[in-house]
Write a protein that binds this DNA or RNA. Structure first.
Length: 313
DNA sequence: TTTATTTGACCCCA
DNA sequence: TGGGGTCAAATAAA
C-alpha cells in the first residue's frame, strides 16, 4: 500500500513539475509576438499534466457524480410536498446527511474598487442565489448560492457569502461541495464574461451599508459598468475536510485563458507569483486544499482580481 | 418569454 | 425550540 502511495506521489510530483516547466515556457510566450497556437498548445499540455496528476490521485475513482446519488435532491419533494411517505422522509434525511459530509472551506475575499463602488467577486463559476438569511449576531445577511447547473447537471456545489462584521469590505465565502458540472473542467471559466451581473452579494457591496434593507435596495449595477474591481483572496480556511469524501474536494482544474494576449502584464505577474510560490511544483497541503484547487486559485476574471496571499488555516 | 432574484415558509439538527 | 439551510412561488429583469 505504501509503495503504491509512493509511486503515485512520485508520478504526481513528476506531472506537477512538468506542469511547472510548461508554465514557465508559457510565460516566455506571453508576448504579442508569440503565436496564439503556441500558447494554446502549452496550455493544453499544462492541462494534460494536471489531468494526469489528478488521475494519479485516483481522481477518477470518486466523483461518482453526486448526480447519481442525489439527483434532483428535491425530486421526491417535487412529486409531493415536503412531507410525504416515510420513505420519502428518510430520503430527505439522507440528503441532509449527505450534505453535511460535503467538504467545506472558507475564503475571505477583500473587495474594493477604485471607483468607490464594489463589484462582483467572480470566482469563475456561475452561481444562482437561492436564499438570504439574517444571521444571529451578524450585521449583514448571509447569501446562499448554488451552482447554476444544479438541476441540469446535478452539481451540488454551493456557497455562502457573508460580509464580515469587522470589515464590510471583506466577504467570507464558504464553499461547499465540489463542482461536478461541466464548467468545473472547462478552460475558460474565469473568462466567462461577467456572467450575470446578478451575481449578487457583491451587488450589495456598498460599503456604507449596515442595514439589510439598504443593501437589498441597492440594486447592483452590471459589472461592466462598475469598472475595475479588485477582489483579493485573503485567506482560505478549510473546514470539514475530515469528511469522508475528502477525495471529493478536488474540482477539476480550471485555467483561465483570458489574460493571454489581452492582459499580458497581469498574466505575467500572475504566473510569476504562482511560480514564486512554487505553486506548480509543490505537493503541500495548501495546494491540495479544495479552495486552492478550485478555480478560485485563478481569479483572473476580467475584473483583474488579484491573489494576494493564500493561507491555509 | 426566459432566466434570475427575492422572500416567506418549511425542515433539520443541536 | 430556535437558528441555519433550503425550497419554491412571486416578482423582477433581460
Amino acid at each position: 500500500m505504501e509503495k503504491t502511495v509512493d509511486w503515485e506521489q512520485t508520478a504526481l510530483i513528476s506531472e506537477l513539475n512538468q506542469g511547472k516547466e510548461l508554465a514557465k515556457q508559457l510565460l516566455n510566450h506571453l508576448h504579442p509576438s508569440s503565436s496564439n497556437e503556441t500558447r494554446e498548445f502549452l496550455v493544453s499540455k499544462i492541462l494534460s499534466c494536471y489531468e494526469k496528476a489528478l488521475s494519479s490521485l485516483n481522481w477518477g475513482e470518486q466523483p461518482k457524480p453526486m448526480t447519481s446519488i442525489l439527483e434532483s435532491p428535491r425530486s421526491f419533494a417535487n412529486s409531493s410536498p415536503r412531507s410525504a411517505g416515510s420513505d420519502q422522509d428518510s430520503k430527505h434525511r439522507d440528503v441532509y446527511k449527505k450534505r453535511k459530509t460535503l467538504p467545506r472551506w472558507t475564503e475571505q475575499v477583500k473587495v474594493c474598487s477604485g471607483t468607490g463602488l464594489e463589484g462582483p467577486v467572480d470566482d469563475g463559476y456561475s452561481w444562482r442565489k437561492y436564499g438570504q438569511k439574517d444571521i444571529l449576531g451578524a450585521n449583514f445577511p448571509r447569501g446562499y448560492y448554488r451552482c447554476t447547473h444544479r438541476h441540469g447537471q446535478g452539481c451540488l456545489a454551493t456557497k455562502l457569502v457573508q460580509r464580515s462584521d469587522e470589515d464590510p469590505n471583506i466577504l467570507e465565502v464558504t464553499y461547499r461541495g465540489r463542482h461536478t458540472c461541466s464548467q468545473s473542467s472547462r478552460l475558460n471559466v474565469a473568462s466567462a464574461p461577467l456572467k450575470s451581473p446578478r451575481l449578487t452579494e457583491n451587488k450589495n457591496n456598498h460599503h456604507h451599508h449596515h442595514h439589510h434593507a439598504q443593501q437589498q435596495k441597492l440594486k447592483e449595477k452590471p459589472a461592466q459598468e462598475i469598472g475595475c474591481n479588485v477582489a483579493a483572496r485573503l485567506t482560505v480556511k478549510t473546514e470539514g475536510l475530515e469528511a469522508r469524501e475528502e477525495d471529493d474536494i478536488f474540482p477539476s482544474f480550471s485555467f483561465s485563458l483570458t489574460p493571454i494576449g489581452s492582459e499580458n502584464e497581469d498574466a505575467i505577474l500572475f504566473c510569476e507569483s504562482m511560480l514564486e510560490n512554487n505553486f506548480m511544483g509543490s505537493l503541500s497541503p495548501t495546494f491540495l486544499s479544495p479552495a486552492t484547487s478550485d478555480s478560485n486559485m485563478f481569479p483572473m476574471s476580467p475584473f483583474s482580481e488579484e491573489v494576494l496571499a493564500i493561507e491555509k488555516l
